[in-house]
Amino acid sequence: MFHTEEESIVTMINHIAQNNVSAGSESEVADIVENHITKFWSRRMKKILAEQLANGTEEFEPAAKLAAERLSAKMSASA
């Protein structure tokens, strides 16, 4: 049970990473997380994710953080 949208976004990316933890190395798990978010998350969710990453206020799983960083970099590059 989470209480804010920001909390839910970070919980969700962590959850994706946890459920794919057996995919291999941290980088391989991050690949899966990144692909999943690219394919299924809306623009708005991705934006909130990037903001939470930038704020550094939320606890990310290592693979989730790596994926969030990659996504954030891509968003910045295409902006």
Partner: peptide, 18 residues
């Protein structure tokens, strides 16, 4: 070409005013 909001996202976005 980007996915849109799912139902729970619509609720969250409504509460944020977007």
């Amino acid at each position: 070409d980007e996915p849109g909001l799912r139902i729970p996202n619509m609720f969250d976005a409504a509460l944020s005013g977007e």
